[in-house]
């Protein structure tokens, strides 16, 4: 069976270029030992996430059951199954930040964005994450939005910060 006949044609046609790139990656690793993890890494770079369609494509091309791919994708924390939002919002949960109220900041973000930690909002704008110590303990509690660092944050200023990115 040809690779393209096994799943919704639209998934491939909508992302023709990305799947072409993925195919190149697969060809590069084909025949090498343990190709799955490196292919998944590059697939995630291309698509932003290992969605079912991406996993199905790799499954057919490498002749590995989708179940096994899914198992690997959920085993390693660096893989994600759902695409991330444009703004990656994360609160440092290192000890210093934590004792200075990081949890309260996080709760406020959950309320403000309407999503839980690890989730992406339905517009694909924000993804909320928790991160380990970012090494800016002097500024604790620390909030990160993409590459922007906000130190000594309080729950009160969270809505203002988020509004800035909503408008951007």
């Amino acid at each position: 069976m040809s690779v393209s006949s096994v799943f919704s044609a639209s998934a491939v046609t909508d992302n023709k270029e990305k799947f072409a790139k993925l195919q190149e990656v697969i060809e590069r690793y084909r025949g090498m030992e343990g190709p799955l993890v490196p292919v998944l890494h590059e697939a995630q770079e291309i698509f932003g996430a290992l969605t079912l369609d991406v996993q199905k494509y790799i499954s057919e091309a490498l002749n590995v059951p989708v179940m096994q791919i899914y198992g690997v994708a959920t085993f390693y924390s660096q893989f994600t199954l759902k695409p991330k939002g444009k703004c990656k919002v994360s609160v440092c949960m290192g000890t210093a930040c934590y004792v200075r109220g990081a949890k309260k900041i996080q709760d406020k973000l959950v309320e403000n964005l309407g999503i839980q930690v690890g989730e992406t909002d339905k517009d694909g704008k924000f993804t909320l994450e928790a991160t380990r110590c970012v090494g800016a303990c002097g500024l604790s509690p620390v909030l990160l939005v993409n590459d922007d660092v906000y130190g000594r944050t309080t729950p009160d200023i969270v809505p203002n910060i988020m509004d800035k990115y909503r408008k951007a």
Binding site: L52, Q55, P65, V66, M67, Y70, G71
Partner: peptide, 16 residues
């Protein structure tokens, strides 16, 4: 069916 997730959260189940 296969192992999903890791450590304490490991579960044997289908995908997604």
């Amino acid at each position: 069916i296969g192992p999903v997730d890791r450590g304490f959260r490991t579960i044997i189940e289908p995908i997604f």
